[in-house]
Amino acid sequence: MSIHIHKEIESLKKMILEMGAKVEQNVHDAVVAVDRLDVSEAKRLIEQEEEIINQMEIDIEEECLKTLALHQPVAIDLRIVVAILKINNELERINDFSVNMAERIIDLHRLEAGKFPFDLIGLADIAQGMLSKALDSLIEMDPNKAREVIAQDDEVDDRHAAVYEVVKEEMKRSLDRIDVIIQLPSLSRYLERVGDLACNIAEDVIYLVEGVIVRHQEE
């Protein structure tokens, strides 16, 4: 084994962090665009950003496979490559949710949706905070920070569950706006999924640092 593998791993880390930063920005832009029902921003996310992230995902996967095949990493090196391979996939899926949000914007704009009957931005702040902290835990290789992300998951889940109650009431009150209202739980759902996938990234970081698989464990 040589120093060469460590250069490959450094380059992989750089690639995944670049992708992470880009996905984080896309989620942020999607949330701002939802708040403003900004169709042109939504179109940019759908037409440009998705393709960029998809290509990044493929590039990182190919580099990971090449590193596994050519260097047969073990121990911490193996765990890093496997974690990057998984985080790569989580990030691509998170970006899909920013695209899904952008698609909803176009519909909601067309339907002239007004103010949302619940605090979507509040939920978005928590989900984005989780993603941001999960990526920080990766950069800093900090499992404690990763555990803080996982601890926040229930709050996002609870807020998302509460949205259904608000929407049910809203539907009863405003039958004429049902086309708009019916779309709102999807937005909340996308953000809740961003939180879930941020937790997955945090779990991957814990595995990377400690070698322990914490997924599917009772608290």
Binding site: M1, S2, I3, I5, H6, P73, V74, A75, I76, D77, L78, R79, G211
Partner: peptide
């Protein structure tokens, strides 16, 4: 040993 050695010394050796 090859996925999660207990000691850093082992890890440093097997990862080159």
């Amino acid at each position: 040993i090859f996925t999660k050695p207990s000691l850093k010394q082992t890890e440093d050796y097997i990862t080159g």
